[in-house]
Design a protein around this nucleic acid. Structure first.
Lengths: 237, 237
DNA sequence: GCGGCACGATTTGTATACAATAGGCGCCAG
DNA sequence: CTGGCGCCTATTGTATACAAATCGTGCCGC
């Protein structure tokens, strides 16, 4: 709060929920794009200063992020970007397989030509980002692809759940991903759109299942050394 | 709740997250048990006085409830118990069918004799509550049954999602239920447990699907008059 | 030199005070 | 008598101030 207390002018103009939402998105995007890595601490004072609001407002946003499991709130220790455990990682992918595949038939039934075009556009941008070496952007677009697909089912409750799973997947990639390849093979997305356009529901469903399993097995999902290892079982009694 | 401004002594002794959690459960339970009906306003001052904390703490809890869609936060108008729309109601049941049925195979694989006993005990208590005319208790126990079942899959991410869907289902029952029967037929639960015990995975899955569909069709899911009716389509242009 | 204790700084947790806004009520004009 | 305007109250939104707790650091005793 000294010489340059506020964030950019455009942000400081906003009011109420709109402003909160902008801050929320700013932080969430930074997490999803791996600009804030799992484990990174998020001090309330620092965030408050950066965004030009008081700690009260920041706390509200951190609570929201915590409920979506993007950040972890440790009592008296503050907020940090969530570091998913190996078990959580497997759970998230199992959940995605169940829900995203289950949604496919309804998506095939409802998808329009315009939707197909939109999905192709996302795929194109994803490839473009990958070719430019913008891994962060690619990850975000890939998540957006899966989210958009889920929305096309018309069930916003399930779509929102998928969106949350995608965000968490991004964290999982950050922790368990082998650097060099960033999650989804973009050609998979292209092929998936093709199947959707052809109305091949069952094949699309099977492909989605294979796709998600492929992403999961491309990771190295093992407990890192820093995870609270049950010392009891290590040193026994 | 007039002459006794604070909550019970046991509650006021609590500290930090533990106390917040107690307040959260108190409100959530009241909503799930229909002691707070959809549309009921939740004034911050009133809640703060009842639970013996400041508005700050109450706001935190209301935010959490809002994210779980048990309460709706209208800017500058405050919090009220969510009144699910007809579309939301259908979405929730579709989501439950997909996830709860999808979980059944894994549940059958992992369920133990102890788990079966526990589920039977829940069913017994549900019947007991219904026979005593304690509809509120029956609703809560019924939700607990479905939640416990989901937990047995071992996937806590999906289990938590199911738990939320069950809470919302309670709200849906409050709005669209015909008074007289409270959601799940308890005999259904008994039969379901039987199938689980026998390890009849596919039959259990089919039964769960039928069960959820039966609950849904026992409701009168139509837009109430108070729902924001698109005046544009009514009065046309 | 090493282990333990205690103090200090940093950071979160909570309450209170103040500002802003929306809805209600009454008054005034036509 | 009716319709509209304006104040007023009740309630939420935001910031700040204060209290509590934890972690790191340095000192002292052994």
């Amino acid at each position: 709060m000294s010489e340059m207390p506020k964030a950019s002018k455009t942000d400081s103009k906003r009011r109420g929920a709109e402003r909160d939402d902008a801050i929320y998105r700013a932080i969430a995007d930074a997490v999803v794009e791996h600009r804030l890595k799992p484990g990174a601490r998020l001090r309330e004072d620092a965030l408050a200063e950066v965004f030009g609001v008081s700690r009260t407002g920041i706390r509200k946003i951190l609570q929201r992020l915590a409920l979506e499991q993007l950040v972890t709130l440790t009592p008296r220790r503050g907020a940090s970007v969530t570091r998913p455990t190996a078990a959580e990682a497997r759970e998230v992918f199992e959940a995605r397989r169940m829900v995203e595949c289950g949604l496919i038939p309804e998506v095939v039934r409802r998808v329009t030509k315009g939707d197909i075009d939109e999905l192709r556009e996302l795929t194109r941008r994803e490839v473009e980002a990958l070719n430019s070496g913008e891994q962060s952007a690619a990850i975000k677009i890939s998540a957006a692809f899966h989210e958009r697909l889920a929305q096309l089912s018309g069930n916003s409750t399930l779509a929102e759940f998928v969106a949350r799973l995608c965000s968490r997947s991004s964290l999982i990639l950050a922790v368990y991903g082998n650097s060099g390849h960033a999650g989804c093979e973009s050609h998979d997305h292209y092929e998936l759109v093709q199947l959707l356009e052809e109305g091949a529901g069952e094949r699309a469903r099977a492909f989605m299942e294979k796709h998600l399993s492929a992403v999961e097995s491309s990771l190295s999902i093992v407990e890192g050394a820093d995870e609270v290892p049950d010392l009891y079982s290590i040193f026994a009694g």
